[in-house]
Amino acid sequence: MALMITNYVKKDSFIQKLNPISKILMIILVILSVIICNNLLVTLLFLINIFLLAFLGRISKEFVKGIIVTMTPIAIWFLIIHGIINPAGTTILFKIWFIPFRKEGLLFALNFGSKLITIVSYFYFFIISTYPGDVVSSFSKIGLPYKIGFLINSSLQMLPLMQRRAGKILEAQESRGLNIKGKLKDRFKAYVPLIIPLIIGSLMEAYERVLAIEIRGFSAKVKKTHYRETSFEKRDYVFVLVYLILSIILISRGKII
């Protein structure tokens, strides 16, 4: 049985070769531009851009799937809620059954929702296009604490293990007659026998893991080295520069407009 370790999709292209720091810088620049410009066109431009990057990184299949699965319900929810009950709405655009949808509310939903989707897409792009091991080494290279990088990285890897443990616990408790279907109240009660062993088990394992990493010199007072080298290459400079210039133009124009 193959186990999915993190969401990283292994592909070979310049997107994967980029330093994680470059991608983080790009995300920061994009967020700033989207928020400061507050312009639907700008937002959509960046949204198209990220799909393009995913395509270049040969991860467009996984990317599109992930974004559609997570973002479609949110988008629909936004349109319905704001279309119907946003107090800014005055002009009735159309009616579904007897429920009126108003223009102002829908525009707000479109504007705000598209920003949200754009920003989330960039983060999702980062997660599936970045080798987690590189996050640690690139972080410590620019002086961020190693332990933070390690924490992020190892917790990403522990997630699937937790899921697997949760599956075993569910089976064990179902074998003892625990019913997780039933009414809402019963269902809520049924969580206790599932959550407690999960927490205790994870804590016990974490305790052992601390021991296992300490005896491999985790707290050694020497400068750590990295087996995986990450460096800031020419392509990183170009990549960051492109986005820097683009956002400067957009932000300054946005202000002029």
Binding site: K168, E171, A172, Q173, S175, N179, P197, I200
Partner: peptide, 21 residues
Amino acid sequence: EISELSKTTGYIFQNPDDQIF
């Protein structure tokens, strides 16, 4: 259903910590 079958079959899992709460 499992809940029905568990009246006949008791299954003792390998790791007790997966069930004690």
